[in-house]
Design a binder for these strands. Structure first.
Lengths: 152, 152
DNA sequence: CTTGCTGCAAAAGATTTGCACGTGC
DNA sequence: GCACGTGCAAATCTTTTGCAGCAAG
């Protein structure tokens, strides 16, 4: 599901949950969807202000909190990142985070499913099937940079 | 490595890196080790004050930051937790977090190694071999509670 | 005597909250 | 009319920073 469809989906889910679909919320959903990646509240706020110059940060926070409560977006707390990121892709996947530049790349692999199954079997927790994972590493560009730095 | 040994190890690693081993830092390392689980700065600060009533929060933050820079402890940013947690166990493992009560349980499973290998192969990132993962779910106790709540 | 560490207080900065006003149902 | 949503500003709270004094090598 992409673009306009996804926006409508989010708003219809809000209404299905008894919440209201307001112009501000439409703008927030639009900004979330159009960002494409893993936006922060600040990213969304900046985009939304292009449409709604008067919107308040609190509204953006409220809307995002509501979307998260309904399980429509997923919160990503990334080590050493100032802002909390959000992920619109609810399919289980791996978010690889560069520990140097912070760029986030998605990866879909069968071994995630295997791992979650193992975790379910070996622990007494009921694992969230939407679980996405964070894995940290160095992206290709930063690998090159750190090689230049290396003095050995 | 446990207890006193681990404390000495941390301090010796500090010195090996050209940092100083001070009584305050000893107390911070001791608090980290004796906590046993996944302490936050607040947890450590509270424990350290029992030994060093005059210690400042800044010192605790500084020490923990230094230990992290040297790769001696690992930072865990857990969604919806106010404080940042730290993990003294550097072996790759999975931290299962209860989304309701916040309790964290460690799990060691071979499939983590498989997953990290896959991620290394399928992405161009250089994955941190110490990578520990966060997985979210409901712990046994909270599973029971949420069943009582269920109205269905 | 130079560098790093500590303690204190203030600052910074992200997120939350209280409240009054508006709006949809 | 009522419940919900919005905007604004202030509050909250964690973490960082500047700086002066101190200690270690």
């Amino acid at each position: 599901m992409y673009g306009r469809q996804k926006i409508k989906f989010l708003l219809s889910q809000l209404e299905a949950a008894g919440r209201r679909s307001t112009p501000q919320r439409h703008a927030v959903c639009q900004a979330l969807v159009e960002h494409g990646g893993h936006p922060t509240v600040a990213d969304v706020f900046e985009r939304v202000r292009a449409i709604f110059p008067m919107i308040s940060q609190a509204t953006v926070y409220n809307t995002i909190d509501t979307l998260q409560e309904l399980g429509l977006i997923q919160q990503l707390d990334i080590a050493n990142h100032e802002h909390t990121h959000y992920d619109l892709d609810l399919r289980p996947h791996i978010n690889i985070v560069c520990t140097r530049c912070g760029i986030i790349t998605d990866l879909y692999t069968e071994s995630l499913h295997i791992l979650l199954t193992q975790v379910s079997q070996h622990s007494s927790y009921r694992i969230d099937p939407h679980s996405s994972l964070l894995v940290y590493g160095l992206c290709p560009a930063c690998q090159r940079v750190t090689e230049w730095d290396r003095v050995d």
